[in-house]
Design a protein around this nucleic acid. Sequence first.
DNA 1: TCCATATATCGAGAAATAGCGATTTATAGA
DNA 2: TCTATAAATCGCTATTTCTCGATATATGGA
Lengths: 111, 111
Amino acid sequence: MDMNEALMALDNPIRRRILVWLKDRSNFPPPLPEHADVDGVCVGYIQEKAGVSQSTISTYMSLLKRAGLVASERHGRFTFYRRNEPAIRTFLDRLGGEIGQGGHSSEDIDE
Amino acid sequence: MDMNEALMALDNPIRRRILVWLKDRSNFPPPLPEHADVDGVCVGYIQEKAGVSQSTISTYMSLLKRAGLVASERHGRFTFYRRNEPAIRTFLDRLGGEIGQGGHSSEDIDE
DNA sequence: TCCATATATCGAGAAATAGCGATTTATAGA
DNA sequence: TCTATAAATCGCTATTTCTCGATATATGGA
């Protein structure tokens, strides 16, 4: 969990919205029957909702994944992305611990 | 409180550290006697601890201030910066509300 | 008024990011 | 094997950010 990468990934309204959308699958079209049990949303659906190009959405999802905020799973030709809840919680906890009120050492901030 | 600006300001280890340093004045040299009662730290001390140029620290503090995360107060030739605790709390609350687990609408995210 | 000092602002070059279309890769199915 | 499709990667230009030194501004004191 690289705080810089996570903050960078989140410094974009569309990428933040994607994280929010992924909370609830009802934000997306129903999955193909064969994927009814897969946990996550395929890139195409996210792209459609975000309204950016295919290459841009792929880059966005890579950034979110590199930051650890989402996880991906490939099923056939489709890549499904889902929130990485423990990582998101860790990120929020660490950010709050660092910059929030209360004692915390700045030594914990990695370059 | 512009979330984008705040996240951008925080996507830099030195700026995050400054916010942490400002929690505790013992991180800085003792104030001039005449400023013993002033709440905040003057730019020069922050610059010295951060180890960046004078113009850079001024820019850093402007970014943090523009994001609302710090407030400033001028006393004579000195500008004192201090944490804006309510704003920091608001920022963390909003970020947690948005991207944290639990129901929240993505409509709340401003472009 | 004149000077010293603290900070802000300006201007610039380097580096990073944004977003796109084109291309490549991987996979399912005919 | 060949084709179609989903997604990733590449290459590009425009924009933004980074960081600095130089300059400007403001203020207190001689």
